[in-house]
Nucleic acid binder design. Sequence first.
DNA 1: CGCTGATATGAATTTAATTCATTAGCAATG
DNA 2: CATTGCTAATGAATTAAATTCATATCAGCG
Lengths: 296, 296
Amino acid sequence: MIEIKHLKTIATLKETGSLVNTARELFLTQSALSHQIKDLENKLDCQLFERKTHPVRFTPQGMLLLELAQEVLPKVEATKCRLKESLNQPISQLRLSVECHACFHWLLPTIKEFNNFWPDIHVDYERGFSYDAIPELLDGDLDLVLTSDIREPDRLEFAHLFDFKLKLIVAPDHPLANKAYVTALDLKDETIISYPIPRERQDIFKHFIQNARFDGTLKTVDQGLLIFQLVSAGMGVAALPDWLVTPYEAQGLIKSIPLGALGLNRPMYLAMKKEMKDNPVYRHFLNTCKQNNSRK
Amino acid sequence: MIEIKHLKTIATLKETGSLVNTARELFLTQSALSHQIKDLENKLDCQLFERKTHPVRFTPQGMLLLELAQEVLPKVEATKCRLKESLNQPISQLRLSVECHACFHWLLPTIKEFNNFWPDIHVDYERGFSYDAIPELLDGDLDLVLTSDIREPDRLEFAHLFDFKLKLIVAPDHPLANKAYVTALDLKDETIISYPIPRERQDIFKHFIQNARFDGTLKTVDQGLLIFQLVSAGMGVAALPDWLVTPYEAQGLIKSIPLGALGLNRPMYLAMKKEMKDNPVYRHFLNTCKQNNSRK
DNA sequence: CGCTGATATGAATTTAATTCATTAGCAATG
DNA sequence: CATTGCTAATGAATTAAATTCATATCAGCG
């Protein structure tokens, strides 16, 4: 119905101020343009501009369309430009580090898909466990880091992938299992099971328990599955992203509870050096991540 | 070349995962779609997705297009929706107040243009001289306020119209006339001519002289033309927006100098109640302002 | 009033999009 | 490993749409 062609016409009309000039700009006859606009006006069932003035005067409706054109056309041009760049692009290598262990759940299929086009990506998930990857990114020893925390925003670009909720999981017969949500106080004496990450870098401590008192114990395991098994057996509680929790909860193995009345929402970013943000290979990886997580 | 039709195809393809399903969604035959995509791929000279998988797998190029589609299509739909609303709209009245006197220069033609479609706008420029219009906006005694300062952002929408530079104007033979820029100190003993607005609400004091010492005098006049005549005659200096200054400077009547090394940049906003920001009449007024100032 | 520059219109023509009918490819199935 | 079912590709025919050509209309201006 509305097509980009029409947006170009409107935008050019604004620039040139008349149909004849617009026709020349667009390499059309004046007649063709006249027909095109009449058709569009008929389809939209409104007049877009008054012809008998210099420059033509846009109606409110014409101005809405003009506004759309001015928003959309630059984006279209940018995409065309990227399309050109994305061809004849030397195959590159991507060194990726992951701060959130639970991310492997969606990351591995994503990488597999990405690898169909760029086979040389290398995922450095060994080092991810207990170090801060951002300095390596700044030093050029890494290309990409998956993280929830923005640091060094001057030199790094943090592309937003999606938001998730961190949920507390407990055994179905756990005393907390039927609460609408938990408070920091509720966790005071619990055993919290987690991946082997220092406490100060765990979201549940950093963003939920914070300075509240915690007298319980911390137990670390390096297998994600094991966390569910331990929690299900009542050996402790854990905080995990919602996307990991859902399938296990559906099976009735565990129960998930929001952290706080509003839930604990966290973002997920793909961090890279600022100068890389327009690189086609990086963009493709970013898009693959986004598309694979669009339903989260 | 790229058309919205194509973006719809790509977006639907992402949703449905196959050509046949996409064809059904778009009320086309499978054949038509196949042809359409082949043509597009030929024109763009690249493959957009691999067909032999479920769901179809997008190439980097396909994903760029998908990204574009996801940005653009919602905007197009929003505009279609606004177009419908903007028809069968009861004619309304707009009460407008102006905090910046120099704005009348472009505002009056803008209103004239706007009036072609909504004749009942009433411009309250009498009251604009020395009072703060925002409380009246909040109370519902006004509909729109032109201002450079954001206040009450929770209840009000500040639509950005354009940015301008505030320039100091002096007589061509004034001691400051040949400086690359002026400092607050340069103005210490000058006579500053302005519209009759309290000092604390004038941009040059609020954003430039600030707490610096000022021992000069303030002279107010209520006619814009008079300011130029007084400055040109060497009776004082004034700070005015660049768009007002340019024609007079071209005639050689005055000289304009940036305020500070970087110039003093100020935004111009159209303030309205949050709930009015999608109203077609308001949008049309906003667009008329923007379009009339796009070259500033 | 008659010229000029701009837009509108209708019929003819060209170009593009769509369909129809058919073929080919792939994967699941027994 | 032939059979079935589903999906995509292709070429020719058809339909629809965009564009042009030739001409008409209209507004502004001296």
